[in-house]
Design a protein around this nucleic acid. Structure first.
Ligand SMILES: [Zn+2]
Ligand SMILES: [Zn+2]
Ligand SMILES: [Zn+2]
Ligand SMILES: [Zn+2]
Lengths: 143, 143
DNA sequence: TTATTTTTGCAACATTGTTGCAAAAATAAA
DNA sequence: TTTATTTTTGCAACAATGTTGCAAAAATAA
């Protein structure tokens, strides 16, 4: 869990990842560090509405994703969310093995870093690249 | 696996599920029976473009979902897909425990009825309702 | 300080989700 | 079989999100 992405300052992170230091990127990184749940593009748009265009936010997320600063989280309503990477995902080569949990009450999705992806048996002629697990239910806070 | 949804005729199914027998519903059920992979709304729209309005297709899927004829399948690109239910999901109370596989080459998603959802360890103060597993990689056909 | 490269905002368009409403179709009742 | 009732459909309309092109602005390199 001790990920530099969650600990170092946004400006330092951008330098480390060879991304230019811009207001939008700093603000978005700050948002990810500030909230302890996964963020959707819509959430960030709302959060930064008066500061940046939605296309800029869209492109920033895309860039962060490609460079391994954030990872994508599936959603059962179609709307994808994002969270800071914990492992080393530099170069956009993501290596996550944790489960995601979506609360049906508060709607928040969180990374359960301690819940590792279990083994899934797949027909032997299939080649597995990635396994995504989304658990839905009620989170600790909402019970 | 021997699900009536995959074996009985569309008209019979509609009667069984107390849904009115309409052209659109029959055609959509036929499509689900015809293809051995999960279908997206967009795919059905393309398939039935000249026959039905996209809102009707949207509502038909919603109705099938609520009545337990089809189940929702997560997708890592945000676009949700659907497949016929295999277990008894009447009343929209879905009871699935199989894994879904999305091929990164052909883009098709399939139900792996024989790959059951493994146990996932979740913090004990969390309440689990449903577990969705999406495996991506390369399917048998595409290797 | 200037030149180069990247990022941003804006316009524009595509796809999907969603609702309201009146017309059409399906089923129930007479 | 005809009429009444209920449901479904098509269409208009709007929201959210994804996506690209392009010129202006900003960041970095020279
Ligand atoms: Zn990652
Ligand atoms: Zn995560
Ligand atoms: Zn089901
Ligand atoms: Zn399935």
């Amino acid at each position: 869990m001790p990920s530099i992405l969650k600990e170092k300052g946004p400006e330092e992170l951008l330098k480390k990842y060879h991304l230019r230091n811009t207001d939008c990127r700093v603000k978005i990184l700050e948002s990810f560090q500030q909230f302890d749940f996964a963020l959707s593009q819509g959430f960030l748009e709302e959060e930064l509405k008066h500061s940046f265009d939605r296309v800029t936010i869209y492109r920033t997320l895309k860039s962060f994703l490609e460079n391994g600063l954030i990872h994508k989280i599936l959603d059962n309503e179609g709307g994808i969310k994002y969270a800071l990477c914990s492992d080393d995902c530099s170069g956009g080569d993501h290596h996550h093995s944790h489960v995601h949990f979506k609360c049906e009450v508060c709607g928040q999705t969180v990374c359960l870093e301690k819940s590792t992806i279990p083994d899934v048996k797949i027909p032997k002629n299939f080649l597995v690249d990635e396994v995504n697990v989304l658990v839905s239910g009620i989170c600790g806070k909402c019970r």
